[in-house]
Amino acid sequence: MKGILKVFLLAVIGGYVFSLLHIPIPWMLGPIFSIITAQFFYKGALSWSPRLQDIGIVIVGIAIGEQFNLSLFRSTGILLLYMFLLNIILIASSIALAFVLSKWSRLSLKSMILGTIPGGLGQILLFAEEEKDVDLAAITYFQIVRLLLVVVVIPFIVSGHIVSKSAANIPMSYSLILLFLLSWGFSYVAKCFKMPIAYFLAPIILVIGLQFAPFDLAPVPPLVMKGAQLLIGAHIGLMLKPHMIKLPLRYLAAGILSSVGLIIITYGTSLIVSHTLDFSFATSFLSTAPGGLDQMVLLADAIRADISVVSVFQIFRLLFIFLFVMPALKYYYMFTAKKRPLELDQDIFTKS
């Protein structure tokens, strides 16, 4: 409990300082920066409960559900085509990038691919743990560095496209607390049924469904959204551990290069989306960026980008990777693993 309180205090200090400096999404970036920095100087115990992050994600899910534009689905066909093509480009670019960096860093191609593909951090690591011949420490480092760089760099890239958002004075209400408890329970049930990113998707689905009911939903106050940013930012800040810097220098450099490469690739695809679909640059870039779903949506909310578009594009990318890319990789690795012993047997037979 003391470790959690220390992290909370660091997060509040970081968020407050970043808000004074007028940095984008200060209550997420501030905690990330302050907690990462503290870990390199403070040797005591720092901890954070995953449940606290889930609380923040559920709050973000409720806010998205309340702002979701259902008219977006009128152009589902063209959106699906663009999302499919963009993800093919992203995955192909990730594999090509992994191939080049694997040669340079001398990390196995298999580990490099798993470190470079911009899927969900937890799901990628679970997949990697099932594979015996990968460098799990390097994969963890690559995925965390990508997430951190995207979360830190992209707000400054789109900062020039920010539309000032007036701070509405929305009070906390019992109906919002009830909505949160209902969303939490719905998310828990969805998680039991193996719904991907359940604590994010389930509240969105629930709140969109409740919009058709004959009563008004309580809006999420700005102070509560800042709290959600802090809960998520504290979790991200604790991901990068000082011991990860002890990896070989080539691995450390390759992790940064792969992340920068993905940001450049998605910057290019976002220009295509902005031009062809007539979305703002901020909306297009946040829709295609290889970051975490909740972080990109939080940023979209902060700068008045189209939350519905960003959510749909980011959710599609995650589902595309979970449902198609990861099973394809699994099948490929199983096929090559079966083929390798056969080739060894043939070599032995030839030599004999």
Score class of each variant (00 low, 15 high):
E66K: 13
G65E: 08
Y82L: 03
L85S: 13
F68G: 08
Y251L: 09
A253W: 07
S173F: 09
I208P: 00
A328L: 15
P290H: 02
K351Y: 08
S274V: 03
A202K: 04
A228K: 06
G292Y: 01
P171A: 02
L97M: 12
L70S: 13
F142Y: 15
N87Y: 10
R340G: 05
K246Y: 05
T76R: 07
V224G: 05
S102L: 10
L70C: 00
L323I: 14
I197N: 14
A198D: 09
K330L: 10
L72D: 01
S105F: 04
W27P: 05
F186T: 12
A137V: 03
V310E: 09
K338N: 12
K6W: 12
S308C: 01
F68K: 13
L29F: 07
L257G: 04
A168C: 06
M195Y: 02
S183L: 03
M195L: 15
G185M: 10
Q211D: 01
I13V: 15
D135Y: 05
L149D: 03
L179Y: 00
K330A: 13
S164T: 14
L262P: 00
G77D: 08
K103I: 02
S164K: 09
P219Y: 12
G3R: 07
G61S: 01
V312P: 04
C192Y: 13
A300R: 06
L125S: 09
L231E: 00
L114E: 04
G255Q: 03
G56C: 07
G119T: 10
F40T: 08
I95Y: 00
L101S: 07
F84Y: 09
L136F: 14
P196A: 01
I315T: 14
Y42C: 00
I13S: 06
G233R: 01
K194T: 12
T336F: 02
R340N: 12
L223M: 12
Q314H: 15
T276P: 06
P327M: 11
A302E: 15
S102Y: 04
A98C: 08
T276C: 01
I170V: 14
A300E: 03
L223N: 09
D135V: 04
L252H: 05
R146S: 04
P221E: 04
I139H: 09
V312S: 12
P219S: 02
T350L: 11
V17R: 06
A328S: 15
G14L: 08
I321R: 07
S93E: 03
S187N: 06
G30W: 05
L179Q: 14
G227K: 06
T116N: 02
K2R: 11
L85I: 14
P50F: 01
D54T: 09
I23Y: 02
I59P: 00
G44W: 07
Q211H: 15
L125A: 09
V158N: 01
I208W: 07
E131W: 08
G61D: 01
P171W: 11
T276Q: 10
M296T: 11
S94H: 02
L299Y: 02
L210R: 10
S274A: 14
L109R: 12
L52N: 10
H243R: 10
F40D: 09
I263D: 07
F41A: 11
Q143S: 00
L148A: 08
I204H: 04
L5I: 14
Y331H: 13
G44R: 02
G65L: 02
F215R: 13
S175G: 05
N69L: 01
